[in-house]
């Protein structure tokens, strides 16, 4: 199927992205290219998948989950918080939402 600019903008919104290029006229080019790529994917309509179980992972033998115990790898909260671009004390900081 073809993708128009309205759909492309809606998808970008869902993906938390700006539909943006580097200059004027880029948005139209991006939409056309996106449309072309999605159009190519339509080749799958030719595959006969009647009754075929989807394969989401090729994992052969999943391991059982490990015991639900805290990791004792020596990491501290500060190791994680220290990566935050902005923080307030022991918290990650985000803009006010209300």
């Amino acid at each position: 199927m073809g993708i128009d600019e309205t759909t492309a903008r809606a998808v970008a919104g869902l993906a938390r992205l700006e539909l943006a290029g580097t200059g004027e006229g880029d948005v139209r080019a991006l939409v056309e290219e996106f449309s072309r790529i999605v159009g190519y994917m339509d080749i799958l309509a030719e595959a006969d998948t009647e009754g075929v179980e989807p394969l989401y992972s090729p994992m052969v033998d999943p391991e059982p989950p490990r015991p639900d115990e805290p990791a004792l790898d020596g990491r501290k909260a500060e190791d994680i918080l220290g990566q935050a671009p902005e923080r307030v004390g022991r918290f990650f900081s985000v803009p006010r939402v209300f």
């Binding site: 869902l14 998948t49 075929v52 989807p54």
Partner: peptide, 30 residues
């Protein structure tokens, strides 16, 4: 990267999931 995120978001979105994402997983089995 943004292009692939867009494509992935599209094929997982409501109304297109069956025709693209699930269909592709079935073809993966084939």
């Amino acid at each position: 990267v943004r292009r692939r995120i867009m494509l992935g978001t599209f094929v997982l979105s409501s109304g297109y999931y069956e025709a693209y994402f699930r269909k592709a997983a079935q073809v993966r089995r084939l």
